[in-house]
Nucleic acid binder design. Structure first.
Lengths: 229, 229
DNA sequence: CCACTAAATGAATGCCGTTCATTTAGTGGT
DNA sequence: ACCACTAAATGAACGGCATTCATTTAGTGG
């Protein structure tokens, strides 16, 4: 028993409104690059909450379903955006600077890019590199830098993964509210923690996230750098 | 003009089915602990995709809307689960072992717990500690350990945050597919990376994620441990 | 005993991603 | 010049989701 939505069957030629375009347009309106660019713009304007297939389609003056001729899911769009963003990560220092400085610059740049795009982190973290050519290019540049710096081949990937893990985790920190560690009414029962938080706050100019990132990064560079021949 | 859904108005007392219970039950069926336990069970059985308010309600033999008497949103439930899971993280070594070993045990335990719950990471990472008492308790235990080990007060929080960032990032790695670094058809254009991947694979027994985690953790412990008085 | 409240129901709402039959404008082959 | 084919659009569905709300009812405290 189908629910009849009662479209009046008596309209012979309704033409109450000028028929909208349907069918193949003069030239293709959409392609993956256009979709990626529009997605990025939309995300910047409306955030990841406002990033819907419907909203994306609207900015492209197209029906939502049209997107699916060029992309197979919303996740696909996120992968495209991710890959584009990764191409913005600065790996140039690997070709001019000593390893320590190169890693440091790369790590900061990487963190800064994705701290504005943390919803992509779960996507990147498990994405096969095959699906993201620009990401693969970044890895190549970094691997080459590690290799040139004298890293033993069999440690390179592990070291990069360690850096990346730290970078992704730190990207979240950037977005955390400033008072995240305020223990409020529980302060009395957590004396060590509460005092440590107070001590940090009372002398902190720099952003908390930046201090922690700087500290950890230095440790990783010193520790992992020790593997070089 | 409300859309009339045409319920036949002629049924005086339909009683086609025995009326379901409605109204206040003998005793409250739900509370936050019960919801948390059920949520955790459901997540373990059906994963985070299968974790719906409707599904959760079903396992509790309750209408979905009933949950909202005890919890204000789905995110709330996730916070409850997160806090419970954090109480499973082992901090006991801070009371018996030297700092290096204690941090190591804590970090592995922390990573292992959340590698099975990565969808919670975006939640934890930005959650004020006030909203999660057991999480706060973990921080207290860890802060106390750092303090006892001679860490300067104003570095404690930053050091913990650095560890945590690394831990969260590494939790994602655990869930990544084994062939995530297979460069496929692009292998020719990424020689350094491809060879490094091959070298790692050819000698690797241990899980890739574990190797990277172990390496990075050692570096962080060595580097950050240097701050102790 | 009665007013009040906590706690349940189920119907409705408004999104969301995705699918599908259908339409149409170019394109390549004969 | 025609025609078969295809790429690319449309809009109407669909099913699922979190959440809201009026309503009902069983205990509870004064």
């Amino acid at each position: 028993m189908p629910a009849v939505t009662s479209a009046p069957a008596d309209s012979q030629r309704p033409d109450t409104k000028p028929r909208r375009r349907v069918g193949r347009p003069a030239a293709a309106v959409l392609d993956q690059d256009g979709i990626t660019a529009a997605a990025l713009q939309l995300i910047q304007k409306s955030g990841y909450d406002g990033f819907t297939m419907a909203a994306l389609a609207r900015t492209l003056n197209v029906a939502p379903s049209a997107l699916y001729n060029h992309v197979s899911s919303k996740r696909d769009v996120l992968v495209l955006v991710q890959d584009h963003l990764t191409s913005l990560v600065d790996v140039s220092a690997f070709e001019s600077e000593p390893w320590e400085r190169a890693v440091r610059d790369w790590a900061w740049s990487y963190r800064d890019v994705f701290s504005k795009h943390t919803p992509l982190i779960p996507v990147i973290a498990v994405l096969p590199v095959t699906d993201a050519p620009k990401t693969l290019a970044m890895y190549e540049a970094v691997s080459a830098g590690f290799s040139r710096a004298g890293f033993p081949q069999e440690r390179i990937i592990s070291a990069i993964v360690a850096f990346e893990s730290f970078i992704f985790g730190s990207a979240y920190d950037v977005t955390a509210p400033a008072d995240i560690f305020d223990s409020g009414s529980m302060a009395a029962t957590t004396p060590h923690f509460t005092s440590a938080v107070a001590r940090l706050a009372e002398q902190g100019f720099e952003s908390q996230a930046d201090v922690a990132f700087s500290l950890g990064l230095k440790a990783l560079i010193a520790g992992l750098g020790g593997f070089r021949a």
